[in-house]
């Protein structure tokens, strides 16, 4: 049976991504380890993404609080606002919004950078200079995205909760201490740990897709644009798919 072209292309791409991912695991644990390049990527990917993640987190916290308040007033549970906002931010909004922003900023940048290096023969030049380009470019970036995203999620959550605190205080007065007591008293192990763990998977997905698209870029500058674009689209889509899987897994484990 002949498969429709789009299905055939999808299966081919999924197979190529799987092969690329298995190569990552083979190369990552074999010396030579590229510590300097890895630390440099952690700085670029982690530290330089912080302002954007912080700003979006702050706005999301503030807006979410302001949007939730009228509904809670209707049900007469306005006092539960910090608890509800806290759970929403820690469980879902923080990790997913941070991962999507991360896919937009870092996924596209990795796709475009590696794509441009590929079409201008810089990756070949690296190879003839005694460097394994997969290790130097891909392994370092994927490890950096995997390790930096959870840290960004933690910081983003903290800033978002502060934004929510300001949101709570727009139409009422709640002390900083009371607000955070209400937030943390209503958080459980099942709220915090799965959200933190899934952000490692989000980081890995964004990194591996960005690198895959860039590393396999072709057709000159047009190919670079496509690599950057599809790195964001596929990376963001994977974040949602992983989120769906994560919620099913935590449900099965009885953590919901």
């Amino acid at each position: 049976m002949k498969l429709p072209p789009n299905t055939h292309r999808f299966i081919e791409e999924a197979g190529a991504i799987t092969a690329f991912t298995s190569r990552f695991f083979r190369e990552a644990f074999r010396p030579r380890y590229e510590w300097n390049a890895f630390l440099n990527q952690c700085y670029i990917i982690g530290y330089k993404s912080l302002p954007l993640v912080g700003l979006t987190g702050f706005i999301m916290g503030l807006v979410l609080t302001m949007q939730l308040r009228p509904s809670l007033i209707d049900y007469g549970v306005e006092s539960e606002l910090p608890a509800m906002v806290g759970i929403a931010i820690i469980r879902e909004i923080g990790p997913v919004i941070t991962a999507l922003i991360f896919a937009g900023k870092i996924g596209s940048s990795i796709g475009a950078e590696l794509g441009s290096m590929k079409v201008t023969e810089q990756i070949d030049a690296m190879e003839v200079s005694g460097t394994n380009p997969f290790k130097y470019l891909v392994v370092t970036r994927v490890l950096a995205t995997t390790l930096m995203l959870p840290i960004l999620v933690l910081l983003g959550d903290a800033i978002s909760l502060y934004g929510a605190y300001l949101g709570v205080n727009i139409k009422s007065t709640t002390s900083f201490h009371l607000y955070f007591t209400q937030v943390f008293d209503n958080l459980s192990f099942g709220d915090v740990v799965p959200a933190f763990v899934k952000s490692y998977f989000f980081g890995f997905a964004v990194g591996i897709i960005g690198c895959f698209k860039g590393f396999n870029s072709s057709k000159g500058t047009e190919g670079v644009g496509k690599s950057a674009n599809s790195a964001v689209v596929v990376g963001s889509l994977l974040v949602f798919i992983l989120d769906l899987i994560a919620v099913q897994v935590t449900d099965l484990l009885g953590l919901n």
């Binding site: 290096m117 023969e121 810089q122 070949d124 030049a125 003839v128």
Partner: peptide, 13 residues
């Protein structure tokens, strides 16, 4: 073995 690439392949960064 030295290799001079057609596009020079200088590292942009």
């Amino acid at each position: 073995i030295g290799f001079l690439f057609q596009s020079n392949a200088l590292y942009d960064s």
